[in-house]
């Protein structure tokens, strides 16, 4: 049996809102040692989502036997919208479940609401992602990256990211013209999350589809910072930290064959 209680429903709500537009169906793997893990790939096979909600993200977590919950995220999202952000949220499943029980408890009122979501058998193929060495890594405020991704999409369907020791440059060239945004590393002592950190083994220039970057920044509400790891001619990793765990996106770049 699985029983996981979140202190606040908002965490799972935000996670599902971050991924449901990229992947519609996915398997939630549940185990006592790993909590909940998900790997899912979008239909175009360009964007991969790797989610880990550790047991530490829950107020209470027990999972007697490893379980796979096949979920339609659109349906789960509908059910999660029934609860308030501050409610306790408990998800419950039997050992061979055909449904997931979702329970909201209002902390102030004596109100408990229960929903049952039908589970599905989902055939998903899983990719092997080795721990990669990266040419460079940037950590920056998540909202700032989101603004750049959204703004630059209005200029071009591609966004070029150029990293050097001294700066990260976002470059867009489109029909109406072009634009670039240059950020330099700095440390904000009072608000560390406002800092921009660049770690560099070697400079990188990579181009990504603006559409996918705009899917990724839907996770902005989850974390104050985003870490972007880039390697020449390889998929990029965008990581949003959860209180205990992470939401990672792997995005294939564009380049000439």
């Amino acid at each position: 049996m699985l029983e996981g209680k979140f202190e606040e429903a908002s965490l799972l709500k935000k996670v599902i809102e971050s991924i449901k537009d990229s992947v519609k169906l996915c398997n939630f793997n549940c185990s006592q040692s790993k909590g909940i893990t998900v790997q899912a790939i979008d239909d175009s096979r360009v964007l991969l989502i790797a989610l880990k909600i550790d047991s530490g993200s829950f107020q209470e977590f027990r999972c007697d036997r490893d379980l796979v919950l096949g979920l339609d995220l659109e349906s789960l999202s509908k059910i999660l919208k029934q609860g308030n952000n501050e409610d306790y949220l408990t998800i419950i499943a039997e050992d061979s479940p055909d449904s997931l029980l979702v329970v909201f408890e209002d902390k102030k009122k004596d109100r408990i609401s229960e929903f049952s979501l039908k589970l599905m058998d989902i055939d998903s193929d899983v990719l092997t992602i080795d721990d990669m060495e990266h040419d460079c890594s940037i950590t920056m405020p998540a909202y700032e990256f989101a603004k750049i991704a959204r703004d630059m999409k209005t200029l071009s369907e591609s966004l070029q990211i150029i990293i050097t020791k001294d700066s990260v440059k976002f470059n867009a060239e489109g029909q109406i013209g072009s634009g670039s945004i240059i950020l330099k590393p700095h440390t904000d002592m009072e608000k560390p999350d406002e800092s921009i950190k660049i770690e560099l083994n070697q400079p990188v220039v990579l181009t990504f589809g603006a559409k996918y970057l705009n899917d990724i920044v839907k996770a902005t509400a989850l974390s104050s910072t985003v870490t972007i790891k880039l390697t020449d001619k390889a998929p990029a990793l965008f990581e949003y930290r959860l209180p205990s765990g992470y939401l990672r996106y792997y995005l294939a770049p564009k380049f000439d064959d």
Binding site: R45, D125, V126, L127, T128, A234, K254, F255
Partner: peptide, 14 residues
Amino acid sequence: TQKQQTLSRFFGSQ
């Protein structure tokens, strides 16, 4: 114009 790559090119299936 550059070509959009897919992840299958970089990661193996399990």
